[in-house]
Amino acid sequence: MAISISLQCLGLIILAAILLQTIAVAVSFMYFNKVLYTMQESFSRSSVSCLINANLRSEFEDSAAEDKKSDPCWQVTQQLHFHIEKTMADRFQKEISTTMRNKLTGGLPNLNPGFRGAPLPKVAAHVTGIVSSTETPAAEGSQSSRGYLGERIRGWEGQKGLSFLQNMELRGGELLVPRAGLYYIYAQTYFRLPSAGETEGDAKGEMGETKEEEGAQLVQYIYKKMNSYMVPILLMKSSRSVCWPQGQEPGLFSLHQAGTAFLQPADRLFITVSNASSMEMDGRASYFGAFLVG
C-alpha cells in the first residue's frame, strides 16, 4: 500500500516538471520572438530614416572616414548609391554602343525585315541609285541589238541606306525573282536637264532649230527577262515631253510608274531610260523595286 502511494507521488512530480518545462519553453519562445520583431522593426525604421533624411552626396564624400563605415545608415546609403551608379552606367553604355553602331553602319538605317514592328512581305526588294552605269544607247524609236529600248541602268544599291533585299537578289542591275506569283512592280527615275547657259554654244540642227527648241523626250521602261525567251519583254513604260530650260536653272523632271505582273522563278527585272546621261542617281529620287502580293 505504501509502495503504491509513493509511485503515484513520483508520477505527479514528473508530470508537474514536464508541464513547468513546457511553459518555460513557450514563454522563452514568445519572448525571443518579440525581441526579434522589435529588432527588425527598429532596423526597418532606421533604414527608411536613412533614405529620407540622408544626403547621399555628403555621405559619399565622407566615406573615407573609418567611423562612417561602421554606421548602418551609411552602409544603406552607400549600397543605394552604388546601385544607382551601376544602373546609370549600364544604361549609358548601352546607349553609347547603339549610337556608335548606327554611326559605323551608315547614316541611314537599313530597312531590314521586321524593322520598326512592320514585317516586310516574304519576297520584296527596293533598290536605289548610286552611280550611273549604262550600256550603249539604242537608236530612238527602234529596237536595240540586245532586244530593248533605251539605255540600261546598272548602278543600283541593294544593301545600304533606304534599300533592302528580302529573299530577292540583285545581279548586274537586275532583280532576280525567287518564286512564282503576282508581283507589284514600281520604278522612278529622276532627270536633270542642263540650263540654257550650260548648253550655250551647242550646234544647231539642219533646220536651224536649237537643242532647246527641239525639246526632249524622257522615257522609262521596265523589262523582264525569261530563261525560256531570248528577247526581254516590255512590261511598262512611262514618257514625258519636256522643253529644255531657258533660264540659268536646270530643269528637273521625274518619271514614275507601277503595276502588277505575274512572274516565274528566275525571271529578272531591269530598268532602261532614254537620256541616261541626264539621269540623277539620287537614292531618294531614282529607285525601283518589287514585292510579292499573291
Rank of each mutant, 00 (worst) to 15 (best):
R240V: 08
E198P: 03
F253D: 02
S195K: 12
P232Y: 09
G197N: 07
M230A: 13
M230T: 12
A196T: 02
Y223A: 00
Q248F: 10
K225E: 12
K211F: 15
N227S: 15
S241K: 06
E212Q: 11
E200Y: 09
I233M: 10
G201E: 03
P232E: 05
L234R: 02
K224M: 14
E200T: 12
A196K: 02
V219A: 06
G215S: 06
P232M: 08
E200Q: 11
S241W: 06
P250N: 05
L193I: 13
W244G: 02
F253N: 04
S238M: 13
A216H: 03
M226L: 12
Y223R: 02
Q220E: 10
G205F: 07
E200V: 08
Q246E: 14
G247D: 12
F253P: 03
Q248H: 12
G215A: 04
Q217L: 12
Y221E: 03
A203W: 01
T189S: 13
E209P: 00
L193F: 00
V219T: 09
S238Y: 09
S254R: 09
E214M: 14
F191G: 01
R240G: 00
D202R: 09
A203V: 04
Q217R: 14
M207H: 11
Y223C: 01
E200C: 12
K225F: 11
E209S: 10
L193A: 05
A187H: 04
M230D: 12
A196H: 07
Q220M: 15
M230K: 13
K237Q: 15
W244A: 00
Y229I: 15
F191P: 00
E249P: 03
A187K: 11
Q188W: 05
T210F: 06
R192I: 11
E214T: 07
P232K: 11
T199D: 08
G247N: 10
S238A: 13
G197A: 07
S239L: 05
Y221S: 03
A187G: 13
G197T: 06
P194L: 01
G205L: 13
L234Q: 11
E200W: 11
E198G: 05
S241Y: 03
Q248N: 15
E213N: 03
P245M: 10
E200P: 02
M207K: 14
G208I: 07
K224N: 07
D202T: 10
M236R: 10
G205S: 15
E212V: 05
P250A: 07
P250H: 09
Y221K: 01
Q217A: 10
R240S: 03
S254T: 13
G201V: 02
G205K: 09
Q217D: 12
D202G: 01
S238T: 05
R240C: 08
M226E: 14
P194N: 04
G247F: 06
P245T: 01
L218C: 02
M226Y: 13
E198C: 01
G197M: 11
S241L: 13
F191I: 03
Y229L: 15
E212F: 05
C243R: 09
S239P: 02
T199Q: 14
M236P: 00
S195V: 04
S254V: 02
S238V: 03
